[in-house]
């Protein structure tokens, strides 16, 4: 038994990354970013509004939070739908009570199915991101570029038309991409994407259609990941976010450069009656100091870009 000689070739072994998508750099070596009023921490809350179709294809994998049982999986379909009917309004109330700005990433199919919800999101003034077509339309390496281009174009155009918003941000379903996704996003006027979770701060990402900003939306600090994937308790969720907040403030103050706390929340998860108080606890802790800048993704990127230009 032996392996093909090609297994011992390393064509991308050399300085920097093994691809050309972005430059290698350590966070500690970057130009410091200073948030408005010298606040050490920027808080970015994103609310993910999702549509999980009952006739899930699961190609090339089931979306996280998707259907589980044989068709028709009424339990998961309706549990997810609960978020868009009930949970989201609890989340809105929690944000309002604590004066927290949030962006909303919405599946375009959901926006078209639920114009009321879209109007509420827009009317409340949330920055709107496109969250792809629906949760079962996953961008992946096995796709034809033309097919993916059509999906991205449709998702963005129809969300922009329906909302009247100039949508500049993108969050892929399951944060999954093909090799062509960043280029297609840039081609269709997207300025920042949130799928690459390899950093705690924004960074410049290269595509054949020009530069796009990678704005990492942490998975590790996501409600769904902590509570559903890891099976941790609601209290543990809150403890972990609070620890992250305190850690980032301390790091920012120690090194004199701003840090970012990026929290993705799902109304079908934290919007349950027994969980919402943990979001309130988290937001109350974060907003209890004057060290936190409550910002939208575009505001965060604008300050970051300004710092790069200096």
């Amino acid at each position: 038994m032996s392996l093909d000689d090609r297994y011992f070739e390393y064509p991308r072994r050399g300085y920097g990354m093994d691809h050309d998508l972005y430059d290698w750099s350590m966070l500690a070596d970057r130009k410091p970013v200073r948030w408005p009023d010298g606040k050490p921490l920027a808080l970015w809350v994103n609310v993910a509004l999702q549509y999980f179709p009952l006739d899930q294809k699961g190609e090339p994998f089931k979306p996280p939070g998707g259907m589980v049982t044989a068709y028709p999986d009424l339990r998961h379909y309706t549990l997810r739908d609960y978020g868009n009917r009930i949970g989201v309004f609890r989340i809105f109330d929690a944000l309002d009570k604590l004066g927290v700005t949030a962006s909303v990433a919405m599946n375009t199919r959901l926006a078209l199915r639920n114009p009321y919800l879209l109007r509420r999101v827009v009317g409340r003034g949330h920055e709107l991101l496109c969250h792809g077509w629906d949760m079962d339309t996953i961008h992946h390496g096995g796709m034809h570029e033309a097919a993916e281009s059509e999906i991205i174009s449709r998702a963005l155009d129809e969300l922009r038309t329906a909302s009247g918003c100039d949508v500049k941000g993108w969050l892929s379903p399951a944060k999954s991409q093909s090799a062509a996704t960043p280029k297609l996003l840039a081609t269709h006027g997207v300025e920042y994407m949130c799928d690459w979770i390899n950093d705690d701060m924004p960074y410049a990402f290269r595509t054949a259609a020009g530069e796009i900003t990678a704005l990492p939306l942490s998975t590790e600090l996501e409600d769904r990941f902590i509570i559903l994937d890891n099976g941790h308790s609601e209290t543990e969720y809150a403890d972990q976010i609070i620890d992250a907040c305190d850690f980032l403030i301390e790091e920012a103050e120690t090194i004199g450069a701003g840090r970012l706390l990026a929290l993705n929340v799902h109304p079908w998860m934290l919007g349950q009656p027994h969980r919402i108080r943990m979001l309130e606890r988290v937001l109350a802790h974060i907003t209890s100091t004057d060290k936190v800048w409550r910002a939208s993704p575009s505001e965060i990127i604008a300050v970051w870009k300004g710092a790069q230009a200096q």
């Binding site: 999954s176 991409q177 093909s178 090799a179 799928d195 690459w196 979770i197 990492p216 998975t219």
Partner: peptide, 11 residues
């Protein structure tokens, strides 16, 4: 996941 496994690589 299919390559590029963006989530796994970025992690």
């Amino acid at each position: 996941k299919p390559i590029p496994d963006v989530h796994g690589y970025a992690t």
